[in-house]
Amino acid sequence: MATTLIADAPVDVDDEGFLTDPAQWNEAIAEAIARENGIPQLTDRHWLVVRFMRERYLATGMAPSIRALGKESGVPVKELYELFPKGPAKLAAKIGGIPKPKGCI
Protein backbone atom coordinates (compact mmCIF):
# COMPACT_ATOMS: atom_id res chain seq x y z
CA MET A 1 0.00 0.00 0.00
CA ALA A 2 1.22 3.47 -0.80
CA THR A 3 0.03 7.05 -0.78
CA THR A 4 0.00 8.76 -4.13
CA LEU A 5 -1.38 11.89 -5.79
CA ILE A 6 -4.29 11.48 -8.20
CA ALA A 7 -5.86 14.64 -9.63
CA ASP A 8 -3.90 16.62 -7.01
CA ALA A 9 -5.45 14.67 -4.11
CA PRO A 10 -3.43 12.37 -1.84
CA VAL A 11 -5.01 8.87 -1.85
CA ASP A 12 -4.04 5.43 -0.51
CA VAL A 13 -3.82 2.79 -3.21
CA ASP A 14 -2.88 -0.90 -3.38
CA ASP A 15 -0.19 -2.40 -5.64
CA GLU A 16 -2.50 -2.22 -8.65
CA GLY A 17 -3.80 1.29 -8.11
CA PHE A 18 -7.15 0.49 -6.44
CA LEU A 19 -8.13 2.97 -3.75
CA THR A 20 -8.12 1.31 -0.34
CA ASP A 21 -10.32 3.97 1.29
CA PRO A 22 -13.46 4.76 -0.74
CA ALA A 23 -13.94 7.97 1.28
CA GLN A 24 -10.90 9.55 -0.42
CA TRP A 25 -12.58 9.34 -3.83
CA ASN A 26 -14.02 12.18 -5.89
CA GLU A 27 -15.10 12.69 -9.51
CA ALA A 28 -11.84 14.25 -10.61
CA ILE A 29 -10.01 11.16 -9.29
CA ALA A 30 -12.40 8.94 -11.27
CA GLU A 31 -11.67 10.83 -14.48
CA ALA A 32 -7.92 10.66 -13.91
CA ILE A 33 -7.99 6.89 -13.28
CA ALA A 34 -10.18 6.41 -16.37
CA ARG A 35 -7.75 8.34 -18.61
CA GLU A 36 -4.82 6.34 -17.27
CA ASN A 37 -6.70 3.13 -18.17
CA GLY A 38 -7.53 3.99 -21.75
CA ILE A 39 -10.88 5.73 -21.34
CA PRO A 40 -10.30 9.34 -22.47
CA GLN A 41 -13.72 10.65 -21.45
CA LEU A 42 -16.29 9.24 -19.00
CA THR A 43 -19.73 9.36 -20.65
CA ASP A 44 -23.10 9.25 -18.88
CA ARG A 45 -23.17 5.50 -19.51
CA HIS A 46 -19.78 5.10 -17.82
CA TRP A 47 -20.96 7.16 -14.86
CA LEU A 48 -24.12 5.10 -14.53
CA VAL A 49 -22.03 1.96 -14.07
CA VAL A 50 -19.38 3.56 -11.85
CA ARG A 51 -21.95 5.08 -9.50
CA PHE A 52 -23.98 1.87 -9.33
CA MET A 53 -20.82 -0.07 -8.51
CA ARG A 54 -19.77 2.34 -5.81
CA GLU A 55 -23.17 2.67 -4.18
CA ARG A 56 -23.60 -1.09 -4.11
CA TYR A 57 -20.20 -1.56 -2.52
CA LEU A 58 -20.84 1.08 0.12
CA ALA A 59 -24.23 -0.47 0.94
CA THR A 60 -23.29 -4.16 1.00
CA GLY A 61 -19.52 -4.32 1.44
CA MET A 62 -19.20 -6.29 -1.78
CA ALA A 63 -18.58 -5.11 -5.33
CA PRO A 64 -21.19 -6.47 -7.74
CA SER A 65 -20.06 -9.05 -10.29
CA ILE A 66 -20.25 -8.44 -14.01
CA ARG A 67 -23.52 -10.35 -14.09
CA ALA A 68 -25.12 -8.30 -11.33
CA LEU A 69 -23.95 -5.19 -13.17
CA GLY A 70 -25.56 -6.43 -16.38
CA LYS A 71 -28.85 -7.16 -14.62
CA GLU A 72 -29.12 -4.25 -12.24
CA SER A 73 -27.17 -1.27 -13.53
CA GLY A 74 -29.30 -0.91 -16.65
CA VAL A 75 -26.29 -1.47 -18.90
CA PRO A 76 -26.17 -4.87 -20.67
CA VAL A 77 -23.01 -7.00 -20.42
CA LYS A 78 -22.05 -6.55 -24.09
CA GLU A 79 -22.14 -2.78 -23.69
CA LEU A 80 -20.20 -3.03 -20.42
CA TYR A 81 -17.34 -4.56 -22.41
CA GLU A 82 -17.51 -1.73 -24.94
CA LEU A 83 -17.45 0.87 -22.19
CA PHE A 84 -14.76 -0.77 -20.06
CA PRO A 85 -12.63 -2.91 -22.37
CA LYS A 86 -11.14 -6.14 -20.92
CA GLY A 87 -12.58 -6.28 -17.41
CA PRO A 88 -15.64 -4.10 -16.78
CA ALA A 89 -16.22 -5.06 -13.13
CA LYS A 90 -12.59 -4.58 -12.22
CA LEU A 91 -12.09 -1.34 -14.13
CA ALA A 92 -15.35 0.19 -12.96
CA ALA A 93 -14.34 -0.67 -9.37
CA LYS A 94 -11.01 1.04 -9.87
CA ILE A 95 -12.59 4.17 -11.35
CA GLY A 96 -15.25 4.17 -8.64
CA GLY A 97 -12.61 4.16 -5.90
CA ILE A 98 -13.55 0.87 -4.27
CA PRO A 99 -11.30 -2.13 -3.54
CA LYS A 100 -10.64 -4.82 -6.14
CA PRO A 101 -13.25 -7.62 -6.26
CA LYS A 102 -11.91 -10.77 -4.57
CA GLY A 103 -12.66 -14.44 -4.01
CA CYS A 104 -12.50 -16.08 -0.58
CA ILE A 105 -8.94 -17.40 -0.69
Binding site: I66, G87, K90, K102, G103, I105
Partner: peptide, 9 residues
Protein backbone atom coordinates in the same frame (compact mmCIF):
# COMPACT_ATOMS: atom_id res chain seq x y z
CA UNK B 1 -11.71 -18.01 -13.55
CA UNK B 2 -13.38 -14.58 -13.84
CA UNK B 3 -11.13 -13.36 -11.00
CA UNK B 4 -7.61 -12.15 -11.66
CA UNK B 5 -5.89 -15.07 -9.91
CA UNK B 6 -6.63 -18.53 -8.53
CA UNK B 7 -5.90 -17.20 -5.05
CA UNK B 8 -6.97 -13.59 -4.57
CA UNK B 9 -6.34 -13.01 -0.87
Amino acid sequence: TPLDAAFTK
